[in-house]
Measured scan of single mutants.
Amino acid sequence: MISNAKIARINELAAKAKAGVITEEEKAEQQKLRQEYLK
């Protein structure tokens, strides 16, 4: 099960992506976390 901290990070990265200020490194982290969440 995914931790609350990881869910919070997913939401934080989603907000950054929506604002258009996300880095390529953060995009990769976001994809990794989303895949983990979906498992």
Rank of each mutant, 00 (worst) to 15 (best):
K27D: 07
Q31M: 06
L38Q: 14
R34D: 15
I10R: 04
E25M: 08
L33Q: 02
L13Y: 00
L13W: 00
A8D: 12
K16T: 01
T23C: 04
K39G: 15
A8T: 10
K6S: 10
A8Q: 12
Q31F: 04
Y37P: 04
M1P: 13
I22A: 05
N11S: 08
L33G: 02
E12V: 05
R9W: 02
E26F: 00
L13R: 02
R34C: 15
K6F: 06
I22Y: 02
K27Y: 11
K18P: 01
E12D: 07
N4W: 02
A28E: 14
I7C: 14
Q35F: 08
Q30E: 14
M1K: 14
A15P: 00
L33D: 02
I22W: 03
L13G: 01
I10K: 03
E12R: 03
G20F: 00
N4L: 13
K27W: 09
A28V: 12
I7K: 07
Y37F: 13
A28N: 12
K32S: 08
A15D: 09
Q35Y: 09
G20R: 05
N4D: 14
Q35A: 09
N11G: 09
A8C: 10
A5P: 10
A17L: 07
K18C: 14
A19K: 07
I7L: 13
M1Q: 13
N11E: 11
A15V: 09
Q30D: 07
R34G: 10
L13M: 00
E12C: 06
R9N: 01
R34Y: 15
I10H: 05
K27A: 11
E25P: 05
A14F: 07
I10L: 15
R34W: 15
L38S: 08
E26G: 00
K39W: 06
I2L: 11
I2D: 11
A14K: 07
L33E: 02
A17D: 07
A8K: 12
T23I: 01
E26V: 00
G20W: 00
V21T: 14
T23V: 01
L38W: 09
L33Y: 04
I10C: 14
K16N: 02
K32F: 10
K6M: 15
A28W: 11
A14R: 11
S3Y: 00
N11Y: 10
Q35H: 11
L13H: 01
L33I: 06
I2R: 06
L33N: 03
K16Y: 01
R9C: 02
A14L: 10
K16P: 01
Q35M: 12
A14P: 00
Q30I: 13
K27R: 13
K16G: 00
K27L: 11
L13P: 03
A14I: 11
E25Y: 06
V21N: 12
I7M: 09
R9M: 03
L33F: 01
R9A: 02
Y37M: 14
K6E: 05
K39C: 13
Q31N: 14
K6R: 08
A8H: 08
Q35W: 10
K18H: 10
G20I: 01
A19S: 08
R34V: 15
E26W: 00
A5Y: 01
I22H: 00
E25S: 09
A5W: 01
I2N: 08
S3G: 11
Q30G: 06
A17R: 07
